[in-house]
């Protein structure tokens, strides 16, 4: 799989670490509810098809990003940075 890293360009997924489901919203640090946290930590929709995922470019720019990827075809359709460097999503491929 090629991931279109917004910083480094298209790179093999081997350079990245998988960070899991990006559709689950992390509670704020002030959230005290164990249920809210448990839902975030344990419960997954686990879709077959389009998915939003966190990937970390550990052997590259070390940015965390949200990657749009299909769990059935493994087709990667985009990646966008999150955090301080967030910017609009880039399209994959140079075709």
């Amino acid at each position: 799989m090629l991931i279109p890293c917004p910083v480094c360009g298209p790179r093999d997924h081997e350079e990245f670490a998988y960070g899991g489901d990006a559709t689950v919203a992390r509670p704020t640090i002030a959230e005290q509810s164990a249920t809210a946290w448990a839902t975030f930590v344990y419960d997954r929709t686990n879709p077959k098809g389009a998915h939003q995922e966190h990937w970390h470019h550990v052997h590259g720019c070390r940015q965390w990003m949200v990657v749009s990827r299909d769990t059935e075809t493994h087709a990667v359709t985009g990646a966008r940075l999150i955090g301080a460097w967030a910017e609009p999503e880039t399209e994959p491929g140079d075709d």
């Binding site: 960070g19 992390r26 640090i29 966190h54 940015q63 965390w64 999150i82 301080a84 967030a86």
Partner: peptide, 8 residues
């Protein structure tokens, strides 16, 4: 991860 996702 925390700096990017939790507390940008």
């Amino acid at each position: 991860m925390l700096l990017a996702i939790a507390w940008p």
